[in-house]
Simulated assay, not measured.
Amino acid sequence: MTTALDHLLVSLQLADSAFPSGLYTLSHGLEGYVQAKRVDADCMPVLLEDLLRHSVGPADATALALAHRAVGDGDWDAVVEVDRRLLASKLNREARQASTRTGRQMLDTARLALGGPELDRYAELVAAKATPGCQPVAAGVAYAASGVPAEQAVASDLFAFAVSFVSAGLRLRLTDHRRAQITLRELAPVIEEVVAAALERELADLGGCVPLADAMSGRHERAEARMFVS
């Protein structure tokens, strides 16, 4: 029998930067902004807030919430539909590859660490190429399999994204360790807002609208030298 403490521990484990999903290899488009000289230390936190509200929230966080709900209902056709819709909403090749690569790494590790028939079923679908295995959907399955409530699951994954983004900022010399912690703490109301919106959306609403971020990702994809995969 799981408890609230068990759910908290699972959330901490899956959102931990040490969890080997490959998030440390991603800048989530930040490196593209740096290459184009469109971001500095002062506006990096603002960019992060905008991405949470208009990109990650409507797309990845919404997909996680929908996948979590579908697993709870035992509706694997709905899980596959969410997964495919999310992948189709990512316009750049490197964004699609980053999502499926980190998703499959999360799935493999979660099966070993957490176990459960839901993760096994999702792994079968991914292996059969019936579904792409995007990271937010894999996370949604993992959280649902462990009984973590949807709100907590979405909040944890959003915080993991924010940590990954700020960590990329550290490596790109846009922030330091202390300012990074201030940035993360000040995101709390934004994450709360984005979680609430994600939980209300339906499949037809899935997808962000961030033309400049897509352009920066496209530039990054063609860059001659890159520190990050995305």
Rank of each mutant, 00 (worst) to 15 (best):
A63T: 00
L64E: 02
A65N: 07
A67K: 08
R69F: 07
A70T: 06
G72A: 05
D73A: 15
G74A: 08
W76H: 03
R85F: 03
L86T: 00
L86I: 02
S89H: 01
N92L: 12
R96H: 10
A98S: 07
S99G: 04
L107H: 10
R111F: 05
A113H: 14
L114P: 03
G116P: 02
P117L: 05
L119W: 01
D120A: 15
Y122W: 10
A123K: 09
E124G: 10
A128G: 13
K129I: 10
G133H: 06
G133Q: 10
C134P: 03
C134H: 04
P136N: 08
A138Y: 11
A138P: 13
A139L: 13
A139P: 06
A139Y: 05
G140K: 06
Y143M: 04
Y143I: 00
Y143G: 01
A144Q: 01
A145N: 01
A150I: 05
E151D: 12
E151A: 13
A153C: 11
S156Y: 03
S156A: 12
L158E: 05
F159W: 11
F161C: 04
A162M: 07
V163R: 15
G169Y: 01
L170D: 02
L172Y: 04
T175W: 03
D176P: 06
R179N: 11
A180C: 09
T183P: 00
T183I: 06
